[in-house]
Computed example of a mutant assay.
Amino acid sequence: MTSAITAGPLAVTRPGRDRTDRGAFRSRELSATTLLIAAVGEVDASNAGDMVGYVEDHISGYHQLVIDLSKLDFFATDGFTALHTLTVRCSRRGIDWVLVPGPAVARVLRVCDPEGLVTTAGNIVSAVAALARGPHTHLQLAPLAK
Rank of each mutant, 00 (worst) to 15 (best):
residue 11 A to Q: 14
residue 14 R to C: 10
residue 14 R to K: 14
residue 15 P to F: 08
residue 15 P to N: 04
residue 16 G to Y: 07
residue 17 R to S: 11
residue 17 R to I: 13
residue 18 D to N: 13
residue 21 D to S: 15
residue 21 D to N: 13
residue 22 R to A: 13
residue 24 A to E: 13
residue 24 A to S: 14
residue 24 A to K: 10
residue 24 A to D: 08
residue 25 F to G: 03
residue 25 F to A: 02
residue 26 R to Q: 12
residue 26 R to P: 08
residue 29 E to V: 07
residue 32 A to D: 13
residue 32 A to P: 07
residue 34 T to G: 00
residue 35 L to C: 10
residue 36 L to H: 03
residue 37 I to V: 15
residue 38 A to R: 08
residue 39 A to M: 06
residue 41 G to A: 08
residue 41 G to D: 03
residue 41 G to S: 04
residue 43 V to H: 00
residue 44 D to S: 12
residue 45 A to F: 08
residue 45 A to T: 11
residue 46 S to Q: 06
residue 46 S to G: 10
residue 47 N to F: 02
residue 48 A to R: 11
residue 48 A to F: 03
residue 49 G to C: 04
residue 51 M to S: 03
residue 52 V to G: 06
residue 54 Y to P: 09
residue 54 Y to E: 06
residue 57 D to C: 09
residue 59 I to K: 03
residue 61 G to M: 04
residue 63 H to I: 00
residue 69 L to W: 07
residue 69 L to Q: 07
residue 71 K to L: 12
residue 71 K to I: 01
residue 73 D to H: 14
residue 74 F to L: 14
residue 74 F to V: 10
residue 79 G to M: 03
residue 83 L to A: 05
residue 86 L to Q: 04
residue 86 L to I: 09
residue 90 C to I: 01
residue 90 C to E: 01
residue 92 R to W: 01
residue 98 V to I: 13
residue 100 V to M: 10
residue 102 G to P: 12
residue 106 A to W: 02
residue 107 R to M: 10
residue 107 R to T: 12
residue 108 V to W: 01
residue 109 L to V: 08
residue 111 V to G: 04
residue 111 V to N: 05
residue 111 V to D: 03
residue 117 L to D: 13
residue 123 N to A: 10
residue 127 A to I: 00
residue 127 A to W: 00
residue 129 A to N: 15
residue 130 A to P: 11
residue 132 A to C: 05
residue 137 T to K: 08
residue 139 L to Y: 04
residue 140 Q to R: 13
residue 142 A to P: 06
residue 144 L to A: 12
residue 146 K to T: 15
